[in-house]
Nucleic acid binder design. Structure first.
Lengths: 150, 150
DNA sequence: TCCATATTGACAACAGGTTTACATTATTAG
DNA sequence: CTAATAATGTAAACCTGTTGTCAATATGGA
């Protein structure tokens, strides 16, 4: 008998756990030539793609993690010279963060490689399947992001 | 302009990271009344659903994590009386693990609740979308599980 | 049988993240 | 303006998982 819709939701949940681990490991290898890890790459991306220089809580909100978690990576990225704190005129204790010249070059290079990678991968999928997967994952994010568990 | 297939793959990748965090947190709440965490629940499930009592490396392979990671949870589950080591006739140092009476009752109860949960959730999705999502995630698992990153 | 190899458990060190807690700074209500 | 409240940075403890390392046990080929 075919899997029910409920069975598929279980499969998807388990796949997310497993794929998270695989993606994080793959990302560590992928970003290693640039001197990054998956975590630092994501923080770099959050800063690079923000419409305005963000502070730490804004980066955390964008990534869906806690500000304390972001803090560790930010401090490392500042030490490494990829990210630079700007004085925040609106909040003396909460600097805004921007990429340094080096940070921009690094993120530009890895983002190019990533885009080439997904363009290659995309050939293996139909547009309809990818659209459906985006719909399903977005709905799950919406649900589990708001639902106070029973 | 509509997102390209490559854009959707990027969206899916970021969604997996974020959904992993949300699911883990939700699972901690969901399993808390049973005295479990998401991690222990998964280990319990791996043992419960194995066709034969597994040893630690087999559980790790089933879950896609390292045997050392499983070891920590197993030792806790044994201490809590949910899991029991059996002497392994085929390998003196590698016991097989089964659920205790308590472990079976606990897993049965939480698995029932989970199944009720996904059955409710399933109403919000079309069968076609869920099938497509399973296809996409399975293909990604296949790819990232085998690909030595460039 | 005996030895090289692989498997496995165990432990330590590390990475990434969360929670808790506290001090400092902004914001807002009164 | 002042006092309560919220937001933020910072640090420490913990959870989960990884890698690296070692010792003990199986396994298989000579």
């Amino acid at each position: 008998m075919n899997p029910t819709k409920a069975d598929n939701l279980t499969t998807i949940s388990l796949s997310v756990f497993r794929l998270n681990g695989q993606l994080a490991e793959w990302g560590n290898h992928f970003s290693h030539p640039h001197g990054l890890t998956t975590a630092r790459w994501q923080v770099l991306g959050a800063i690079a793609l923000a419409p305005q220089p963000p502070n730490i809580p804004q980066i955390a909100a964008m990534m869906g993690v806690t500000r304390q978690g972001v803090l560790k990576q930010i401090n490392l990225l500042v030490d490494e010279g990829l990210v630079q704190p700007l004085p925040n005129p609106a909040h003396k204790r909460s600097p805004l963060y921007v990429l340094t010249k080096t940070g921009q070059a690094t993120f530009g290079a890895i983002d190019d490689r990533w885009n080439k990678h997904v363009q290659k991968m995309a050939a293996g999928f139909t547009g309809a399947d990818l659209d459906a997967a985006v719909r399903v994952l977005s709905a799950l994010l919406q649900f589990y992001g708001n639902e106070p568990s029973p």
